[in-house]
Design a protein around this nucleic acid. Sequence first.
DNA 1: GCGTCCAGGTCTACC
DNA 2: GGTAGACCTGGACGC
Length: 309
Amino acid sequence: MYTTKFSVSAPRNFSFWRTVFSHGWCSLPPFKVDKERHTFERLLELRDGTLVHCVMRETSTGFRVQAQSGKPLGDSQKKEMRDQLRACMRLGDDMAPFYAEARKQKPFRWVPRLGAGRMLRAPTVFEDVVKMICTTNCSWALTEITVENLTTKLGKQFNPAVDGAGGAEYSFPTPTALASATEKFLRKEIRSGYRSPYLLELAENVASGKRNLESWRTSTLPTEELFKEVRSVKGMGDYAAGNIMRLLGRYDYLGLDSWVRAQYYTLHKQGRKVGDKTIERHYAPHGKWKGLFFWLDMTKSWYNHQFPF
DNA sequence: GCGTCCAGGTCTACC
DNA sequence: GGTAGACCTGGACGC
């Protein structure tokens, strides 16, 4: 096993742990938080298929990475590994305009002060979309089971030395790997139920080049058109597409689900139910940032106690 | 241990 | 454009 160590510097307004805990993604493999060691881990798969297990630790200027691989890494592989981690942690996102808006509004002045607002994402849009479909119409516990099954049964195993003796890590399946599964396998082994044909169709379209999800992160399409494209993936309704938009850096949609609706009723209506249009109206003044203001408003309590551990 | 009911978004058919 | 019903699973609950 070969070890590579390097540091990643981040903008001054970056908060390592607030990015990691920005939403549920950090607890879905191949991401992993080790609360005892205070590390954030991720098994990356590089374009050439090389697996690299990265352990990240917060530093005063960003984070430090200790990466393990089966073979020594070349310069281009090291660059790709760094680029993937930067993409996950949203280091390329310019948060200054959003923070300037947040500073103008008293209820949101805590956001720039704490460095909140960067939302963790996967190295690929494909992984984000597959995981998002796995969150639809089910409990979080089932999402965790489904994603765990996807990695252990269709991903690649890292650390062959232990070979099933515990401690092995698995990568997230590539589009080709997922496309090679049958619907029956997905239903029975992955437990993805009626979502199985949606996942298969998506994987087949990406693997064949019919759909290029990765272009969404750099797309110049107007937000409304990009949303329509995201929404055109079978299994992606308003909730799922709205949340994917946030991971693409577009914050015009709220991505409402039952949990955030309940949060809104509690925080703003004394528990009284209201329609989605009322919620939309509440955040409309925030313009193109409304989806991010909304999410931070709903999750503010996460930041109230000592953070992160 | 077994059966029943419910919650959770999206799709499709229908009005 | 709006709505009802089906889709599938895990968990809660009653027996």
